[in-house]
């Protein structure tokens, strides 16, 4: 099959067909069913698209795995700065001492408590409220992914308890609420864990 002209005898163009494949937009959709030239043009574009997918699969295989040395080298060269967040004041017996902890360290604490629960993986953690003022009410929000096969409700209840205990032990925050949102249930094959 050859394509000598960009404009078909029916007046439509390969550019229109190219746009149609990407967006579904075409001035006269029923025409595409009946016009042999347009159908053949679409077939060609679809074959090209399939070849493009094949090329991409090939390129991706050639790029190697994210576990290979090249990625290890790149990751080793990255210097990822800490994210301290807000500064949370801590009580001190001596007024001359100014003690504080970072919001980032509290978020990391929440994350590690959630992660330590079997079958749970923490996502985004937010501390809502003015943590820079002692005694201000602070609500903790945690996104949570739960691996398939682990019961959701008992997990959430025991996590809320664990978090309350850990936050009381390691911070002076006035925790007003602990909200856990299960955003994902992961159907992970056991052998991959």
């Amino acid at each position: 099959m050859s394509m000598p002209h960009d404009v078909f005898e029916c007046g439509h163009t390969l550019e229109e067909l190219s746009l149609y494949l990407d967006t579904g937009e075409f001035p006269d959709p029923p025409h595409l069913e009946s016009c042999p030239e347009c159908r053949s043009g679409l077939d060609s574009l679809r074959r090209l698209s399939a070849a493009g997918e094949e090329l991409f699969a090939n390129d991706l295989a050639a790029a190697g795995s994210g576990r290979d040395d090249w990625m290890k080298d790149i990751l080793a060269n990255l210097t990822l700065e800490l994210r301290p967040g807000r500064s949370i004041p801590l009580h001190s017996d001596d007024p001359a001492d100014t003690l504080s902890e970072t919001e980032g360290s509290v978020i990391a604490l929440v994350r590690s408590v959630a992660d330590s629960l079997p079958g749970a993986v923490a996502g985004k953690v937010r501390l809502e409220g003015d943590v820079t003022v002692p005694g201000e009410p602070v609500a903790v929000h945690v996104d949570l992914a739960v691996l398939f096969g682990h019961p959701l409700m008992p997990r959430a209840a025991s996590l809320r308890q664990d978090l309350a205990t850990a936050l009381a032990r390691h911070t002076e925050l006035n925790i007003s609420a602990i909200d856990i949102t299960v955003t994902d249930v992961i159907d992970a094959p056991r052998e991959e864990l």
């Binding site: 990625m71 990751l75 800490l82 994210r83 990391a108 993986v121 996502g123 953690v125 691996l147 955003t183």
Partner: peptide, 30 residues
Amino acid sequence: DVVPDAILAGRAADGDTAAFESLARRYGPH
């Protein structure tokens, strides 16, 4: 390595380098 992108991105935005590296391994080849 088995959790969805949004979980990893949320953790990484919070400063979790392990989650960020997992994202990098996941999409680095692409």
